[in-house]
Amino acid sequence: YHADPSLVSFLTGLGCPNCIEYFTSQGLQSIYHLQNLTIEDLGALKIPEQYRMTIWRGLQDLK
C-alpha cells in the first residue's frame, strides 16, 4: 500500500514518519481513514507507545 501525501505530511509533521507503515500495512492510506481512531485503536495497530498520544492529539486537532 502507498500512503497518501496527506498521511505522510501529517505523520512527518508530528515527528512520526516511521509510523507510516503501521497504518498503510492495515490499509489505512489517508488521513481520512485515521480521523475516527481512538487511542485504543492506535494500540491495536501496534503503534509504538511513545507515539500514540502524539498521533492521537494530532488527530483531535484535525477535528
Rank of each mutant, 00 (worst) to 15 (best):
L7M: 10
T38D: 04
E49F: 03
L34R: 01
Y51K: 12
S6M: 09
C16G: 01
S9P: 05
I55C: 02
S6I: 03
N18C: 06
L7C: 02
L42Y: 10
A3S: 15
D41A: 07
E21C: 04
P17A: 07
Y22I: 06
I31R: 08
H2D: 07
Y32A: 11
E40N: 06
L45K: 04
I55S: 01
Y22C: 05
L37E: 01
H33C: 08
Y51F: 09
C19P: 00
P5V: 15
K63P: 02
I31M: 11
D61R: 08
H2Y: 09
L11E: 01
L14Y: 03
G43L: 12
Q29V: 10
L37H: 08
Q26R: 11
K63C: 04
I47R: 00
K63Q: 14
G43C: 08
Y1P: 15
F10T: 01
D41M: 04
G43H: 15
T24I: 07
Q35Y: 12
Q60K: 14
F10K: 00
E40D: 08
T54E: 08
A44E: 15
P5F: 13
W56N: 05
R57V: 03
W56H: 14
Q29C: 13
C19S: 07
A44S: 13
S9H: 03
L42W: 14
G43W: 05
Q50E: 13
E21M: 05
M53A: 09
E40C: 12
P5H: 11
L28N: 04
H2F: 15
L11P: 00
N36A: 09
Q26M: 04
A44L: 13
V8G: 15
G13M: 07
R52L: 11
H33Y: 06
A44H: 10
F23Q: 01
L11R: 00
L34P: 01
L7E: 02
I47G: 00
H2S: 15
V8R: 15
E49N: 14
L11F: 09
Y1W: 03
L28Y: 08
E40R: 08
L28E: 04
S25Q: 13
S25W: 03
Y32N: 14
V8Q: 12
Q35H: 12
L11M: 06
T54M: 06
L7A: 03
A3T: 15
C19G: 02
G13V: 04
F23Y: 01
W56F: 14
K63W: 09
P48L: 00
I20A: 08
I31Y: 05
Q35I: 05
S6H: 07
G15T: 02
T38R: 08
G43I: 05
S9F: 04
A44K: 13
L59K: 02
G58T: 03
S25L: 08
L45T: 07
R57D: 11
V8K: 15
G13Y: 04
Q60V: 09
Y22N: 11
D4G: 04
Q35W: 04
L11K: 01
S6D: 12
T38S: 12
Q35L: 07
L34Y: 03
L59E: 00
M53K: 09
Y51G: 03
S9C: 03
I47V: 13
F23I: 03
G27Y: 01
E40W: 07
L37M: 12
D41E: 14
K46V: 07
I55R: 01
Y22K: 09
S30E: 13
Q35N: 15
L37N: 02
L14N: 01
C19R: 00
I31K: 06
R52K: 09
C16Q: 02
L34W: 05
S30F: 02
L59W: 04
Y51I: 05
G27M: 01
E49G: 06
I31G: 04
T38N: 06
L34A: 13
I55P: 00
T38Y: 02
G27F: 00
N18Y: 05
Q50T: 09
I39W: 04
T12P: 00
Q60T: 10
S6A: 13
L62R: 10
Q50K: 13
W56D: 04
P5R: 14
I39T: 05
P17E: 13
D41Y: 02
M53Q: 13
D4V: 09
V8M: 15
S30D: 11
G58M: 00
Q60E: 14
L59P: 00
Y22R: 09
P17I: 06
F23C: 03
L11C: 06
S25R: 10
T38G: 07
I55Y: 00
G13K: 14
I55F: 01
S9E: 10
T24P: 02
V8S: 11
Y51A: 10
I47Q: 00
G58Y: 01
G58A: 12
Q26A: 14
N36L: 08
G58I: 01
R52Q: 10
S25Y: 03
L7R: 00
T38Q: 10
L28F: 15
I47W: 00
D61E: 08
I20G: 03
L59N: 01
H2G: 07
G43P: 10
S25M: 08
D61G: 12
P48C: 02
T12R: 13
L45F: 10
E21I: 05
G13A: 10
I20V: 11
T12D: 15
M53H: 14
P48D: 08
I31S: 14
M53E: 13
S9V: 03
Y51M: 04
